[in-house]
Design a protein around this nucleic acid. Structure first.
Lengths: 122, 122
DNA sequence: TGTCAGTATCCGCATAGACAGATATGATAA
DNA sequence: TTATCATATCTGTCTATGCGGATACTGACA
């Protein structure tokens, strides 16, 4: 369990980007795939995928392949060596202005999403 | 009072650097000047000054001129719109490996520091 | 006014990171 | 095996940022 300044800086560096904050402010129950982000935040596929990769590499999300889909879930309970700080940060993010709009956008999208295909791909 | 994603990203972006984390993990009672950082963290003058400027611009410290000296104090109680998250982050930083060493280094330096001059300048 | 001390900023260099379209890769169905 | 779908990665472009030495700026004092 590494609690170094360098590791902490890498984790926090992931948060220095507005798009990634918006991702982390989405509801954390369940999992999101790339197409969910594309639709919810109006992101091109490569941008969505890249941000998820960054979050994965810095320990904020974990990826699970399910068939053609790659699902990402938040692992903030272990981020920052399990101190709870990750959850605190997410809690704060959800109080920000843009968060409710994004969350509603995600809910709307999930209601209409075709279960067999990702409706937002490319 | 702005609690936008963009403003939050700017505040958090300041934390994506190890040196700045080390600065923020120093004791927050009292104030630090550039030469304190130079001595404590073995930084060149320009580097110390630049990091403090970055922290000032992102709302982590406030600068006060006292004669020839520029003293910086932490204003984490107001960072993140006064939510307390700034303090939480600082609390976490002080649990990291490097923090006690830096804190001790600062204490040692302050004991020997000449009050009339900054002993570490350039 | 010139000098010194403390500090902010510039400068050049190198690296990282944001972006989106293009392309490669992985999974699945026919 | 090929085609389709979903996603990761590459590519080129641009911007940001870290670094430290050099230089400019600020304040104090003789």
């Amino acid at each position: 369990m590494i609690n170094s300044m360098e590791a902490t800086a890498r984790i926090l560096k992931a948060l220095g980007d507005e798009t990634r904050l918006r991702i982390l402010a989405l509801p954390k129950d369940g999992e999101l795939c790339v197409c969910d982000l594309m639709a919810t935040l109006s992101l091109p596929q490569s941008t969505a995928s890249r941000h998820l990769a960054y979050l994965r590499n810095s320990g904020w999300v974990s990826g699970t392949r399910k068939g053609k889909w790659m699902y990402y879930r938040f692992i903030t309970d272990t981020t920052f060596t399990g101190s709870g700080l990750g959850e605190e940060i997410l809690c704060y993010l959800s109080t920000l202005e843009q968060a409710p709009k994004d969350q509603e956008s995600l809910r709307d999208y999930l209601l209409t999403k075709d279960k067999e295909t990702c409706a937002a791909t490319k």
